[in-house]
Amino acid sequence: MTRTPTSPPQKDTAPARPAARPQRDLFYLDSPLTSEIRGERSLMAFPFFALSKTAWMKPLTYQHANVAIEVRPSAKGVATIYDKEIVLYIASLMAGKIERSEEVGQDFIFTAHDLFSVTGANHSARSYQRLSEALERLQGTQIKTNIEAGGEGEEGFFSWLSEARLHYSKTRSGERRLKAVKVRLCDWLHRAILRDKQVLAYAAAYFQLGPVERRIYEVACATAEEGRLEIDLATFRLQVGYQNPLANFRAAMKAIAQADAIPDYQVALVEDAEAEEPAEGRGRGRRAPSAKVIITARPKALSEPSGEDANHLEA
Rank of each mutant, 00 (worst) to 15 (best):
V87E: 05
N146K: 11
G77E: 01
D196N: 06
S306W: 10
D83F: 07
K292P: 00
V212E: 12
D187Q: 13
A180V: 05
R250H: 12
S7Y: 12
S74F: 07
Q139R: 07
W188R: 10
D114R: 12
G105V: 04
Y206C: 01
L93T: 03
V212R: 02
A220E: 00
S173F: 12
A234P: 00
E133Y: 13
W188S: 11
I147N: 11
L60A: 07
D30A: 07
S132H: 15
R215W: 08
N244T: 10
R250K: 11
F110E: 00
I86G: 13
S31Q: 13
H167M: 14
F110Y: 06
K84Q: 13
A259M: 09
L88W: 10
A203E: 04
T235Y: 13
L135W: 06
S31K: 03
T145E: 06
K300C: 03
T141N: 02
R177M: 09
F207M: 05
A257V: 09
S306G: 05
R282L: 08
L229Y: 02
Y28S: 15
A257R: 01
A268P: 03
R176N: 10
R137V: 02
W188G: 01
R172A: 08
R287A: 06
Q106L: 13
L194M: 11
K97F: 04
V199L: 08
L246V: 11
A203V: 10
E133A: 11
K254I: 02
E102C: 02
S162Q: 08
E280W: 04
S52Y: 04
P263A: 02
